[in-house]
């Protein structure tokens, strides 16, 4: 206790009051004091993030409960090694007699790579669409014109509607006797045909999340000083040149963060396809994402589900890591750099 109370007296003038704080120059006392301050947060993070992740990993190495033929009761499955992971990654099913075979259709294990591909397909297509349309919306919202407030509010409406409600709305629109088929005069089974179902999800997701993208990009656009454009005009740059050589590089940090957020969000897409198509379409699983697969598996056995969610977690983690490492999406430093006008 005494250590804690003593520390402030050792501190050089607190950062707030002093102008002369050296950048990055934390001395030892600072460091210790900082670690005391940060401990409560670490404990909370440990409880809400560390515990679920660690316990999921532990569970993923346990077999799912099996049935005791004599009593008809479930018994603990015991240590599983990597068999739960093999079940998903290699699509192997193990019978009671220990024989390993490929999982038959209708078993969740057979769907892993299908769901994996579907998830990445949705992510790639929706994020590209949302980025392009979102950029366009942001450019419009950034201009000064009569009724700008109204346009901004209108663009944000889809984002304000809860996803479950959005999904239900589109479910009615895409119903066989629904609005869309009447308007198009078509007889498309939107929730059943493979590509129609995929497009239904893409359309609904784009409609729903583009405003989010637009909002983040708009925040970036508003930090670009007007003088830059004035200078551009003076130098005789055309509108297209101004967009590609001024706007885009200057908004890039904000844009990368927005894309990162969307990619991570899209990779764990669950509610929209779950409600809109139930993961169906095509041969029955054309819109099953990894998260839908996890939830389906939870009802069949927690331990296999833990292995699958650990795999999903790692996949998303790797994607995020690659983004930050190679594409320069730096969530923490972006704003600071941008305010300084650093072109990266």
């Amino acid at each position: 206790m005494s250590a804690v109370t003593e520390v402030p007296s050792k501190l050089s003038p607190p950062p707030g009051r002093a102008g002369g704080r050296k950048r990055g120059g934390l001395n030892e006392a600072h460091g210790r004091w900082a670690s005391y301050l940060i401990t409560p947060s670490l404990v909370i993070l440990g409880v809400v993030i560390g515990y679920p992740v660690v316990s999921a990993i532990i569970m993923s190495f346990q077999k799912d409960a099996g049935l005791d033929k004599a009593t008809g009761l479930f018994v603990a499955g015991g240590f599983a090694g990597f068999s739960n992971y093999a079940h998903w990654l290699l699509q192997q099913c193990v019978s009671t007699t220990g024989v390993t075979s490929a999982c038959p259709p209708g078993n969740l294990g057979a769907q892993f790579w299908n769901a994996f591909g579907t998830t990445f397909f949705f992510t790639a297509v929706t994020v590209v669409l949302e980025t392009v349309i979102g950029m366009w919306m942001a450019l419009i919202m950034n201009r000064a014109f009569r009724g700008r407030g109204l346009v901004r509010a209108a663009i944000l409406v889809p984002w304000a509607i809860p996803t479950a409600v959005t999904a239900k709305l589109w479910y009615f629109i895409f119903a066989f006797n629904g609005i869309l088929n009447s308007v198009l005069g078509a007889k498309i089974l939107w929730t059943s045909d493979e590509w129609a179902a995929k497009f239904a999800i893409i359309i609904a997701d784009t409609w729903k999340t583009t405003p989010f993208m637009a909002l983040l990009i708009l925040a970036g656009l508003q930090l670009i000083p007007e003088e830059v454009y004035e200078a551009g005009v003076m130098d005789g740059a055309s509108t297209v040149q101004r967009f590609f050589q001024l706007t885009l590089p200057l908004v890039r940090p904000a844009l990368m963060v927005a894309i990162l957020f969307r990619v991570l969000d899209a990779l764990r897409m669950f509610d929209l396809p779950q409600i809109l198509t139930g993961g169906g379409g095509g041969t029955g699983n054309a819109t099953t994402t990894l998260s839908i697969l996890v939830v389906d598996q939870i009802r069949q056995g927690f331990n296999s589900a833990s292995a699958l969610s650990t795999i999903t977690f790692l996949v998303i983690f790797i994607v995020a890591f690659l983004f930050v490492r190679f594409l320069g999406a730096n969530v923490v430093q972006t704003q600071a750099n941008q305010q300084k006008g650093v072109l990266k």
Binding site: L42, V43, L45, G46, V47, I49, G50, Y51, P52, V53, V54, S55, I58
Partner: peptide
Amino acid sequence: AGIAVIGLALA
């Protein structure tokens, strides 16, 4: 590491 240790302990 601290977060992981707390998680492990709780688990």
